[in-house]
Write a protein that binds this DNA or RNA. Sequence first.
DNA 1: GTCTATACAAAGATAGAC
DNA 2: GTCTATCTTTGTATAGAC
Lengths: 209, 209
Amino acid sequence: MFWEDGAVASTKRLSNRGSGRRAELLAIAGELFATRGFLATTVRDIADAAGILSGSLYHHFDSKESMVDEILREFLDAQRETNEQVLREASDPRAAIAELIRRSFGAMRRYRAAIAIFQNESNYLGGFERFGYLQQAAEDFERTWTSLLQDGRRAGVFREDLDPKVTYRFMRDMVWTAVHWYDPRGNLTADAIADQYIEILCDGIVSRE
Amino acid sequence: MFWEDGAVASTKRLSNRGSGRRAELLAIAGELFATRGFLATTVRDIADAAGILSGSLYHHFDSKESMVDEILREFLDAQRETNEQVLREASDPRAAIAELIRRSFGAMRRYRAAIAIFQNESNYLGGFERFGYLQQAAEDFERTWTSLLQDGRRAGVFREDLDPKVTYRFMRDMVWTAVHWYDPRGNLTADAIADQYIEILCDGIVSRE
DNA sequence: GTCTATACAAAGATAGAC
DNA sequence: GTCTATCTTTGTATAGAC
């Protein structure tokens, strides 16, 4: 199968925490959830991809929901940690924004599947109480970015004629949707794309001569 | 139900073409597909929302797939027409890009549900032969925008240090993802958001003083 | 154009043997 | 940790009456 290499590779990377088999199955499930969608992926699909039968999955997990839950929590925990660190260490708003963008692209190496799932399935999963933390994470995220934008605006670094809320959504969409086409094995490194995005965001596409 | 007003209103607008009932049911189905997702919406959901029983839907449509097919085709036909018109009439690349962005936001009035479905479900639906036109539409779209970007680059209007492909994806994502949060009844008109997006895209968020 | 009734398939999940 | 076997629910779709 086309994704097998990737799944196995990321499995190796994750195998230091928790039971190896568990992490392996999560990597496989995550890849399927990300590419086909959560609802479109059956537990039989996951089992097939893992080379076992569907019933055997329930030895490791309560339900399909538990699997996606675990995948999302791991990613969001790491993401919150990253955001806090950037806010602590950044010297000025522009540098902080640039760093957040760079880190977001960087996260695609390890959490590409989780990011795609978060993007694509939050709307559906958010409807269940169990996944209430998804909306919380989105709000955390919004607070981080808008506070930086407002700081920069007050400091005269960012334009004053732009609505911070519109600008925030602009940036958020810009960063996260890249997960749909970003290919970690392609020509463009995550950093190269991030730099171009930062360029466009800060200075626009219009020539200055 | 919270969306009922919207569905009924857009039904009125569409009732001039085709059987009234058919268009009405499509508007209801489209709203559900857009907000809950295609797979998460059952034919019973659609029938409930329409105040009839699920079996009755099959008097109007072959299948759930036929419904989403019809919704998507109508939107994509209109969109192709719009793109061609803009290309024909635009005076220069920058004006054309700005007009495309403005029209894309403008399309949200009439095709908000279809745009969301196209965004969210292309990945899944594109896997079926019947929906091969989805990928074609995406390619058409890419051709239109990248040709404009390259023209503008050659003419010295756009920066030469940006990869046109990266820039294209940046713009595409920027425009289409707004459908996730754009509220036609909110404070911001589609044109107001479009203008801010054009501003950011062309000149960036950094202050020029 | 809608209802009643139901066929049929697929999906999530469980129990107990190995 | 996986398999066999199976239960239960849900969802798509059909047939024929009204």
